[in-house]
């Protein structure tokens, strides 16, 4: 497998606390990888290092054949904006904007005109079954609908990788299944890879492959699954 995104020997500490202690991983183009592990094991730290949100203390992050862990801030945030999409557990939508406007936001910020951005958002509203609530505010919709908006917003600018940290953490199992199904199928249709952090096996089961982190290290299965 040729990897699109990889981390090698990743270390990261917060003061005296080591959060990552030498993690290696590879994500192939179009692959959905779930990162599992107990609370505090370093899953979010790993995701942040891979996505260029945090700089690792040691080790390398390579995306599309280039080192990205040493990029300067400006180039790193440009990379995040143009190549990566993000979904978090909650609190990521702008409360004053409608769902439609929230979805269009990455295109507007990327310099696409208002009309084109809103039209593109309209397509995603249909794909993610949000037609009836498109003009409501985030505070007026369910958690599952809000997460579908977050998905659309993560995917609208055509990222190569979507990073999702506990995207279903606040949802019941029915809504969680819907969000994961949409995440996996839309990312696949767009050819994007997905790195999804979750401690729920039912959520991780949507992935092509699972990596488990314990105490800042990746646990490798002794036998291939």
């Amino acid at each position: 497998m040729t990897s699109l995104l990889s981390g090698h020997g990743l270390h990261k500490s917060f003061g005296p606390i080591p959060a990552l202690r030498g993690v290696d991983l590879e994500v192939a183009a179009g692959e959905v990888l779930a990162v599992m592990g107990p609370s505090g094991s370093g899953k979010s730290t790993l995701l942040h290092c891979l996505a260029g949100i945090l700089a690792p203390d040691a080790g390398e992050v390579t995306f599309d054949g280039r080192r990205i862990d040493k990029l300067l801030d400006g180039r790193r945030s440009r990379l995040r904006r143009t190549q990566f999409g993000f979904v978090f557990q909650f609190g990521q939508l702008v409360p004053e904007l409608t769902l439609r406007e929230n979805i269009a936001l990455p295109l507007l910020l990327g310099g696409r005109g208002r009309r084109g951005s809103v039209a593109a958002a309209g397509e995603w509203i249909e794909r993610l079954q949000l037609t009836d609530s498109a003009d409501r505010l985030p505070g007026e919709v369910s958690g599952g609908q809000a997460q579908r908006v977050a998905l659309a917003r993560a995917l609208i600018a055509g990222p190569r990788v979507v990073f999702a940290d506990e995207p279903t953490g606040a949802l019941d199992s029915v809504a969680a299944d819907e969000v994961m199904e949409l995440l996996v199928t839309t990312a696949r249709a767009e050819g994007a890879s997905v790195v999804v952090v979750t401690h729920e096996p039912r959520v991780a089961a949507f992935a092509d492959r699972q990596l488990t982190v314990r105490d800042g290290r990746a646990v490798l299965p002794a036998v291939a699954p």
Binding site: E181, A204, A205, F206, Q210, T212, P221, A222
Partner: peptide
């Protein structure tokens, strides 16, 4: 530890298959 981890991997693999079948 080793036995539990391998068992965990087996369970996860079966869950992946079932999730795929459910589609």
């Amino acid at each position: 530890d080793v036995f539990l981890e391998e068992q965990r991997q087996r369970h996860l693999a079966v869950m992946r298959d079932l999730t795929r079948q459910r589609r």
